[in-house]
Structure formats: C-alpha cells, structure tokens
Design a protein around this nucleic acid. Structure first.
Lengths: 225, 225
DNA sequence: CCAAAAGTGTTAGCCATACACCCATGC
DNA sequence: GCATGGGTGTATGGCTAACACTTTTGG
C-alpha cells in the first residue's frame, strides 16, 4: 500500500458507545451534548477519536470514562460504520460499541475534567441525534435483544444480588413481551446460571422476594428463551 | 476533533475478507500471495485499503473482486481489528468481512488485471499468515458456525438446487458433527425454509436424490438446531 | 384485615432423539 | 444381482406453555 496515495490520505478512526441500562421500566441510553462544530448543542453518543498508539478497544474504554466517568463496564464491539458522508468534515470511520451497566451505577455519573453534560434517555423518546447516531442506537437495541436471548448477558444489567421478578423485568422491558412468572422462574433456575443467596429483600409492603446471584459474571453463550 | 493533532494523524483503514466455501468435505478459505513489502511472498487474506470516497462495505466488495475476481457473493461485516501494532508500517485498522460462496463458483476464479495468485486452503491446513490474519480466520470460523445454527445462511454455500444429503453435509462439515439423516430431514423440512423442486439428481450410481431449493435467498434469523 | 407482590404444581401437546429397513439406480 | 447411497416411520422422554390459588409482609 502506497502511503502517499491521496485516495487514502487523511482518514480518521472514531469510537462511539451506546451505553444501555434498564431503569424505571425503560431501556435508557446515555447521550452527551456536543460542544463543538459541527452540530453544536445536539445530542450525540459518547465517543471520540482513537489515538495512534492505542487499540480501538482501549480507546472505547478511555473515551467512555473521559466523557461520562463510567468505567469497568461490559463493553463489546458492535459494528463499524463506514459511510464516507457520515461525518461532513472528513472521512471518519466509526467503530460502535455496546456497553451495558446496572442501574445502580447510573447515579454515580461523576464529572471528570473532560466530562460533558451527560443524560440518560428513554430509547423510545430519543432527541434528534447528530451524524448517523440514531442508526447506531437502532442497531445496538437489536443486538441487545439478541444477546439477551442467546447469552447470560443479563448479569451486566443487574446488581450483584437481585430478585427473580427483577430479572424477569429486565427481559420483559428489553424484549417488550410479558412472560409467565412460573415458567420464567423454572426455565432460568434449570439453566443453572443463577443461585439463591439465601437472603431476601427487605422493607417492601408485601411478601419479600428471595435474592439470587449469577454464578459466573462472564459472557457465556446460552439459549435462554 | 482537532484534525491537526498528531495523536490522530496518518491513520489508515483496510478491509480484509475471509471467503469460505465448502468443497471436498472441507471448509476452505481463499488466500492470496502478497507481492509487496512487508511479508513478500507470504499468504494473506484478500483485502486492501479503503478509499476516501467509498463506504467501507463497498470497499470490501471492490477489493474482493479486484484481488480474486469474485463478485456478488454474500458479504457481511465481521469485526474490526484495531491493535496499533497489527501492521508494522503505520496505524492501520482493519474491518474484517465474512464472505460465503457456493463451491460451484469456486472454479471460476478468473484473473483480472489486479488479481493476485489466489488459492483455496483447507482451514485445517492453513499456511502461516501475515499480520493478524490467522486470528481473523479463527473468528470468522466461529462466526460461520453460529450463523449456520441461527440462520438460513446455508443458502449461500449451496447451488440453487441441492439435495438434502448435500445440505446435511454442509452442516456436518462446518460444525464437525454427524446428524441423523431422518431427524435432520424432518427438522429442515418443518422449518419451511426449503421446498422440493420436483426434480432429481441424475447420473449417480445409486438411487437419485430429490432436489430442493431455498424459498428465500435472503438472510433470515432462524434457530435451526 | 386489606393491599400488594411473591411463590408454587400440574397437565397436555409438541419437539427432539434414537433407531433399522426398503428403494432406485448404474454397472 | 450387487453395491451405493437415498428415502422413510415410530416410540420415548423431555421441554414448553397454559393456567389459579396461597403466602408473606406493611400499613
């Protein structure tokens, strides 16, 4: 490959993160408000340029922490968007990532030096997004639904200890479908992914639910439904 | 984003294609022999640089045709490889694609002006590959197996008309597993993805097999196994 | 005692699996 | 007629899906 060829010059690589959480019976995603041209003031996915000396995966982690303060969350490459017109300034390829986080961590969106104004949005009520970011979110939702059905990824969306109704809620909210409580419970317990902690919920004005935990907090392909 | 920042300068975008076919009871992939430094003479995946004015997906099609003469085949984005050291020359991000082709088209590897010396290799007997291409092939095989189980993608690997034993062969070869003929047949016919053409195989020294075709030649997510 | 949400068991139908013999063709 | 590979049916066990009442807690 000829480095000087103008056909290839001045290309840029970007990462964009779609961070999802389930909160208040909605799927929510984190958006930040853009401070620079073009699209000043519009909402965009958190993300930024990949540096020359870091891997693209690392850039995703770094940018997410710099722009939102979130770190150590589940992060997976989703798709690469490469339309030459997607950024009006220059050829910019964006590697999109899907990130999942438990709603308990949602509140600790601390500000760092580079943190922008970040806000969680119900994915059914997204504002207009700059660039092709709406398309990226759409693909991320599709992927999230598949992952939920074909893996144990729900562990990333729940606290260490959770109740079966909470787990079922995550499935119902994301898939937009109701499940029979008895069948859901039996199915999930038979899969062997979770175990009872022996503890129970407290302080509810009703019968307290048993608490469970995932045996392994690591991605595993499993047919759930 | 600051265009002049040396942190981002001189990045390159590449596409690499893993083309699979099933032939002679093996999964085979197409490799080309590298003509330039570095790694002269080593085998690599077909691919090349993305031009500024084309989409990454289009670059994949273009490069595949230029380097191998193959066109109009099933092509799907697989993963983006972004280790900063993966290319010793400069920061080069590679978007890997998975391509699938029916073995009947394998023979018509016509040479075009830019066509390199291309050859099909049994994936169990690959030569050393330059860059991180072996890792890319490994990931592609994993993805192929998943796709076969969770979609109708087998249509891309078979001619228009095919016999059920041929179809079963594709599954057995790719998944490395034997299936019961009667159960496989019943399962696949019940899925409603294929239909009998009414024709039969000819010229075999045994009972001729019925020919089937896929009702739709378009990717569809379906749980097959 | 009332409201709210959690927990529990059974049945019926469907699907997956395992398994062995006959059929059509070319030579 | 024989060798080769293709086509077919049945029985069993396990999983899925549908369904309603009882339990525990706080107020």
């Amino acid at each position: 490959m000829d480095m000087k060829n103008p056909k290839y010059k001045n290309q840029g690589i970007h990462v964009d993160m779609v961070v999802f959480t389930v909160d208040d019976k909605k799927i929510k995603t984190l958006l930040v408000q853009r401070g620079r041209k073009p699209f000043v003031g519009e909402w965009i996915l958190p993300g930024g340029a990949v540096y020359n000396d870091e891997s693209v995966d690392f850039a995703a982690e770094r940018e997410l922490e710099e722009k939102t303060g979130l770190k150590d969350l589940y992060l997976e490459q989703l798709h690469t968007f490469g339309n030459p017109k997607r950024d009006p300034r220059k050829r910019m390829v964006s590697v999109a990532y899907l990130a999942l986080v438990d709603k308990k961590k949602v509140s600790i969106l601390q500000k760092t030096s580079k943190t922008l104004d970040a806000k969680w949005f119900d994915i059914k009520k997204l504002p207009d997004l700059a660039f092709d970011h709406k398309e990226i979110v759409r693909l991320a939702v599709k992927s999230l639904r598949k992952m939920l059905i074909y893996s144990n990824i729900a562990y990333t969306l729940l606290p260490c200890q959770f109740t079966l109704p909470e787990l079922q809620g995550v499935y119902e909210i994301i898939l937009g479908e109701k499940f029979d409580r008895r069948n859901f419970r039996r199915k999930f317990l038979n899969l062997g992914l979770i175990e009872a902690t022996g503890k129970r919920e407290e302080g509810m004005a009703n019968r307290p639910a048993n608490l469970y935990r995932f045996k392994a907090k690591k991605y595993k392909a499993v047919d759930i439904l």
